[in-house]
Deep mutational scan, measured.
Amino acid sequence: MGFKLLSKLLVYLTASIMAIASPLAFSVDSSGEYPTVSEIPVGEVRLYQIADGVWSHIATQSFDGAVYPSNGLIVRDGDELLLIDTAWGAKNTAALLAEIEKQIGLPVTRAVSTHFHDDRVGGVDVLRAAGVATYASPSTRRLAEVEGNEIPTHSLEGLSSSGDAVRFGPVELFYPGAAHSTDNLIVYVPSASVLYGGCAIYELSRTSAGNVADADLAEWPTSIERIQQHYPEAQFVIPGHGLPGGLDLLKHTTNVVKAHTNRSVVE
């Protein structure tokens, strides 16, 4: 069995187990497998329904001669939608809004960016022009300005110390501490036991640490421990890039980060 097929099978099995364990909360999309990078042309966006009122959005972007996937989250909030992270750029984010209108038909009224990198804030200006209120932590807003990236308009308070959590509509926002970046936030959907790890969490097929220019490698494993301790009931975990899975993604990420750190020390 090929690795790609095995990865998709694991996603399907995880979703099936969740649907059985929580039949009222989960209505997993039966329309197909989780979209992969090879299936999404740059400039297009796919939506994948995880649970009743919960979707991931998947886009792709060219970077350094390669094409990478990027995940975000959409959560229903009454007759409105909360968006977590842009679709990595203005063109993708405009396509995301169009796809949401086509498939869901509810307005996106608020959006949260989970850290300051372009795959999370690139497209904020498109959201703002569409009347979406954009939010991020003060740290993310400051770092985005320093980096020359787009800056969300509103500040999220109460997320300055490791372990801080605040309720934001249908989700809980959690600051686990520094990891992929010093400002990275985690998003949890309690009604569906869905954990969105953003770039602080890796997919299972990833074996290298990737972009760690703004990471705190020493603190990252401790931050992941905080996530595990705060959300032990999480059933569906979405990484910032690639295929979702279960809580095993947290341990896998820790292993990859520690291996990278150990290699760096040896070198």
Rank of each mutant, 00 (worst) to 15 (best):
G2Q: 15
F3R: 07
L6I: 09
V11D: 11
V11T: 12
V11M: 07
L13W: 11
T14Q: 08
I17E: 10
M18L: 12
I20T: 11
S22Y: 09
P23S: 10
P23Q: 10
P23L: 11
E33S: 10
P35D: 07
V37N: 13
I40N: 06
P41W: 06
G43K: 06
G43H: 08
L47I: 13
Y48W: 15
Q49T: 11
Q49A: 12
A51Q: 08
I58A: 06
D64T: 08
A66R: 09
Y68P: 03
L73E: 01
D79Q: 10
D79F: 08
L82W: 03
D85V: 00
W88H: 00
A94Q: 14
A95R: 10
E99D: 08
E99G: 08
I100A: 06
K102M: 12
Q103G: 11
I104C: 00
G105E: 09
L106K: 10
P107W: 03
P107S: 10
P107C: 05
T109E: 06
R110N: 12
A111S: 14
V112I: 10
H115T: 00
H115S: 00
F116E: 03
F116M: 05
H117E: 00
D119E: 03
V121E: 01
G122E: 10
V126P: 00
L127F: 06
L127R: 01
L127D: 02
R128K: 13
R128C: 08
A129N: 15
A130R: 14
A130I: 08
G131D: 07
Y135F: 11
Y135K: 01
T140N: 05
R141S: 05
R142N: 12
V146M: 14
V146Q: 14
V146F: 14
G148P: 03
L156D: 00
S162Y: 11
S162M: 10
G163F: 05
D164S: 14
A165N: 12
A165V: 13
A165K: 15
F168Q: 02
V171A: 06
E172Q: 06
L173K: 00
F174G: 01
Y175C: 04
Y175N: 06
G177E: 01
S181Q: 04
V189S: 03
L195H: 05
G198H: 03
C199R: 03
Y202E: 04
E203W: 03
R206S: 15
S208L: 12
S208K: 10
A209W: 07
N211F: 12
D216V: 09
E219I: 10
E219H: 08
W220C: 05
S223E: 02
R226A: 08
I227K: 03
I227T: 09
Q229R: 13
H230V: 10
P232M: 08
Q235S: 11
V237L: 05
V237E: 01
L243Q: 15
D248R: 07
D248Q: 12
L250F: 08
H252Y: 05
H252V: 03
V257D: 01
K258C: 07
K258M: 13
V265Y: 11
